[in-house]
Design a protein around this nucleic acid. Sequence first.
DNA 1: CTCTGTGAACTGCTTCACAGCG
DNA 2: CGCTGTGAAGCAGTTCACAGAG
Lengths: 220, 220
Amino acid sequence: MYAENKLFKNLPEQYLKRIPFYHQILSELALKNEAYVSSRYLAGFFNVDETQIRKDISLTGYKGKPKYGYSVQGLKEAIEAYLGINYHNTAVLFGAGKLGTALIEYEGLADYGLEIIAVFDNNPVKIGSPVGHFNILSPSALPRVIRSFDIGIAILTVPKTAAQEVCDQVTAMGIKAIWNFAPLQLSVGMDVILRNENLAAGAALLSYYLKKSNHRQEGP
Amino acid sequence: MYAENKLFKNLPEQYLKRIPFYHQILSELALKNEAYVSSRYLAGFFNVDETQIRKDISLTGYKGKPKYGYSVQGLKEAIEAYLGINYHNTAVLFGAGKLGTALIEYEGLADYGLEIIAVFDNNPVKIGSPVGHFNILSPSALPRVIRSFDIGIAILTVPKTAAQEVCDQVTAMGIKAIWNFAPLQLSVGMDVILRNENLAAGAALLSYYLKKSNHRQEGP
DNA sequence: CTCTGTGAACTGCTTCACAGCG
DNA sequence: CGCTGTGAAGCAGTTCACAGAG
């Protein structure tokens, strides 16, 4: 869910959501040394018609070859260039718990535009200890890091009870976007972009579709 | 992204995605002892008009009071009943790494219809050790657990390299839905519901909106 | 004949406009 | 009046239909 106030709707949001999946699929095909891929094949991974795939790809500016399809390498590189130009940003991560560590070690976050620069935690016991290839820093280092590296995004993987406080701290220091994993609604200023990641939302959708499919089997 | 083949589109997907957030917001209001909430207030958390909120709520069957709004307790309970009836499912989690552990400990996964029954891992060193309030089980116990507890969903938080193998294993045992966190596209039968969670997709969207907002400040 | 590329038609989600109730 | 509830209108995203390139 977004609170970015509809300022920048020039690219279809559905398209933006599909782009990273295209890249993932293309990376797999590249590993298998596939040379070409058709819009039909790509459409198989989504609930959309192959035409939609062609429209999406045309938005990145890449051109396919009639009869052959799209060059796997070419399209992959086109998307990477596109992501690099349009998406690349630096972030700090706050909260070196299980979820924070998982995110730090998550493959390919950087591939999709988000480079984590530093990791912070309020717990003095954790400060100084390593996580991934970072050392956990004290929040007192935040202002220096944010200014030195021109950080735009803060990733919040702190407990629910600490989230609003940390959010206020980082936005006061000029952070312009929050990626919140704590299960609560943060309040932020109008100029701050907020994305709430609610893992439970995914669970609810999956449960719903499974229930429906069971009912279907029992029904007429 | 889904591969559930459009069989069950009777409820708007956008609505299904908003429902868990409504519940989260209502839980916070309940803690603050707020008695009523308006559709306008709820709309503030999303990029939609307040009318849309009223349509969503009417789909759950709950009725508000003109002039007052919706009862926080009443609506919260209505959504819980709705989720309980329509969503509740049992799941096994495979892969007791950082992300798996984070999911197990994630607050309120059960609130949104997904109850984790058991946790498995291929690593013999981990088997038998505790994670959350579970003990990690050997995959050899899978058939027994799936049959005994009528498990419908498998959550995959295994490394990329193991994901397809584990996926094949569990679907062969009758699992009908996969929630995949490994960053690759799994191939499954037509009758299996597949949800791919791609954390990077969220990162890409956030990066895009931040870039846009920066350009806007510089532009005309 | 196959697969891309794109304007036109369509579908479904969102907003508008307004009736109804406290 | 304030806020819900809902049919009608509007719009974004998807699919259809078909031209074009190899």
